[in-house]
Design a protein around this nucleic acid. Sequence first.
RNA 1: GCGGGUGUAGUGUAGGGGUUAUCACAUGGGCUUCCCAAGCCUAUGACCCGGGUUCAAAUCCCGGCACCCGCACCA
Length: 494
Amino acid sequence: MSSEKIENTYEKVVELAKRRGFFWPSFSIYGGEAGFYDYGPLGVLLKDNIIRIWKEAYLRENALMIDTPVVVPRAVFQASGHVDKFLDIAAECDKCHLRQKLETFTKSAGFQEVFDTVDSGLAFVNEHVVKCTNCGARITRVFDVRQMFFLPDQGSSGDLFLRPETAQGIFINFKILNNIFRGKLPMAVAQSGKGFRNEIAPRQSLIRMKEFNMCEVEVFVHPEKKYWAEIDYDEDITICPRSSPPLRVKAREAVESGLISSNAMGYFITLTQRILLRMGISKERLRFRQHEKNELAHYSFDSWDAEAELDGNWVEITGIADRNDLRNHEKTSGESMSVSTDEGDIVPSVIEPASGVDRIILSVLMHSIMTRDNGYTVLSLPAEVAPYHAAVFPLMKKNGMDQLAREIYRRLSMIDPYIFYDESGSIGKRYARQDEIGTPYCITIDGTSLEDGTVTIRERDSARQIRINAEEIINHGLLGNPAISRDKFSGQSS
RNA sequence: GCGGGUGUAGUGUAGGGGUUAUCACAUGGGCUUCCCAAGCCUAUGACCCGGGUUCAAAUCCCGGCACCCGCACCA
């Protein structure tokens, strides 16, 4: 099998995704709508698996799970700063209709001003001659571009928005959650759900969508110590700090040397790597890059992005931000957000590992797709990520092989529902189909099965088979069954 | 949002004012086959949408939409 990078992996994955049923553009019979994608039969299973891996990793950190509405009243985003800051002050040239951020025009005209409001921008262009970077005409039109969707109907308290992040649902419930956690710190709260952003130019299928899935964790820590737990992870991470060239380090050492600013930041960078690798991101194609000062979000002092290399570009798939939202909500709502500790009352700081589920899914697919020497495609997904754990086939549809195969399928699916049954076409075609959707094992019932109850199990990546008693699988399952461990497939070929 | 390119079955494509719209793969059914998309028979299936020009538009023109590439944007 060739593990070299396939040129145009992106297009290959998008084509496969539609043909086999992972994902495709939404609303296509009505011409489509940019920025929206449907998950199909396989994509739903894959996405569930990705989210489950994340959820289980954070349950092991004793995180609390929460689920809050996607529709959110204005007051929340007023306090968080999104209403004021989550928009662009844009300008348009009346002559050539070039449209971009006002600051892009003013900067290239030699001005350093930053604009928060349409009024301040308008006042500026009236006072100063700002010329179009394209045609040289004077800029006079200034307007704002909201990046949050808002609903035409009012709620009981005014404007309603679709949330651009799930995080605020956690912050505003901080006191309730901390009570449930019996007042302790540090505390982690996690939420998986949809977010909405009015992207100007949605691109590249799952990379930039207007409606997307996110998995966010808010880790509440002591603001001076920012400590979560001893970093006992020993593996290397690749980091790109602002202050030095890229390097491979252990998180513990990077925290001790000050390259990573806090224990909590280092801990969750490493945990994020473990989670992403488990999901099927390739380690060689994953790095953590610290944000430049000028690319930090309005709420963040420090931020590290987990980036996946996709067809030569580094794409953010998870962001780990050091932010301070509780103070804003305390100020605006008047509710105390402080926690009593031995060292007095404190308002916790927040470390936020936030993952884009859709981007992870695309990255996992792009990192998993392989081409066999015979030219056929294999999705080399981790077994626990693959939509189906196994497929069951009769070698041929005769002599009772199909009856026995259906019986084994029926019994097996009682203990593991992620099993696919197929008896159509030739055996080779069925293997190839399962390879292409990442099914790690194919169980085939042949003539010998009729005699002694054994079946063959074929491992996807090696295409090798072992023979095993069917009862062994039915009683113990496939995943984690020592009789079916990968190394069993390494020695013999068939 | 801007500029360029593209749009033909599920997928990849040929064609290019009047065709029965090409081919391959995939898909359904049948035959064959005791292990890797084999073979044979058979069936289903397409010109992105709207307007214009024309006797006639899938084909030419205009507009829209979507996708791809670059720019800008990415809280």
